[in-house]
Amino acid sequence: MSAVKDAAPPVGARAKLDASRRALYHDLLRQMLHVRYFEEKAGEAYAQGKIGGFCHLYIGQEAVAVGSLAALRPDDYVFAGYREHAHALVRGTTSRAVMAELFGKATGCSKGKGGSMHLFDAARNFLGGHAIVGSHIPLAAGAAFASKYRGTDQVSVCYFGEAAANIGAFHETLNMAALWRLPGIFICENNRYGMGTALERASVVYDISQRSCSYHMAAETVDGMDVLAMYEATRRAVERARAERLPTLLEARTYRYMGHSMADPIHGHYRTKEELEEQKQRDPIAGLRARLEEDGLLDDAQYAELEKGVHAEVEDAVAFAEQSPEPDPAELYTDVYKA
C-alpha cells in the first residue's frame, strides 16, 4: 500500500466548468504544457552537459505555480526556492531568458551569474531563485512588510517545499507575519519528499497547513494537482491579504515526478516506482484536459494547437540559449557592489 494519503480524488458528480471562462482554462492549460515541455527540454540539455550544477525540475507540480500565479497582479511580489523555473516562466520571464540562464549565458535573466537556482526578474517583481531551504521565507515577508509600510495593496507570495516547514526561518516568519498583519501568502508545495526524506519521517504533523494554528493564521489545504483549485484558493488568500492585510498559509498537495535534482534517482530507496505511477494518475495536465473535453470546452485540434505553440517557443529558447554568448570575463568582478 502506498504511504501517500493523497490518492486521485474519486470520480463523481461535479459542477460543469463555466463556459464563459474558456479562455482562462485554455491559458492555464497552455502554461502547464509550457512549463512541462520547458522542463523536459531543460532535462535533455542537462543530460547533454549544456546545463551544469544542480538542476531541479518541476515536472508534476505545474498546477501549483500556474494556478496560484494566475491569481496575482503584475505588481505583486513573488519569491521562490531553487525549483523555480516554472515560477519565473509563468510570471512572464521569457523562455529565452530562463533557458539562457540555465545555460549560464550572458543573455540569461541573471546574466549567467545565477544559474538554475537563482533566477531573478526585477521588472516582473520575480525576486528569486533562493537555494538555502527556508531562507527566502523571511525575504517574502520583508516585501509584504514594504507593502504595508508604503500603504499599497501589493501582496507577496512565497513558494517553498514542505521540508522548509521544519526550519526556524519558517516559524519566525509566520509568527511575525501574523503578528504584524503582513500581506503575505505562504504557499507550501508539499511534494512529499525533502530530497529523499518522506514528510512523515521529518515532521510529526502530517498536515502542513496545521502549522498555521501556532500563529493564528488562516490556512487551507489544496489539491496541488488541480490547477483550478489552486487558482481559487490563491484568489481567496489574495483577497484576504489585500482587503484585510492578513497572511495565509496554503498547503498544496502535489508530487514531483523527477528525482530531487537531475543528479538524483527518480525512485529507489525512498519511494517506489508503484507510488510514482499511482501519483501520475493525478497528473495536472491530463486532469484539466479531461475535464475540459468532458465539458465540451476543448477538442483534440485545440489541444494540439496549444502543444504546438509551446513546443515552438521552447525550442526557440533552446536555440537562443545555445547561440547566446558566454558572459564577458570582465563580468566576474561586476555586480559585487552597487556603485
Binding site: 542537462y46 543530460a47 547533454q48 537531475m262
Partner: peptide, 10 residues
C-alpha cells in the same frame, strides 16, 4: 540517444 550527464560532475 546520447550518454547523458546524470550528475553534476559526470
Amino acid at each position: 540517444v546520447v550518454m547523458e550527464a546524470l550528475s553534476p560532475t559526470m
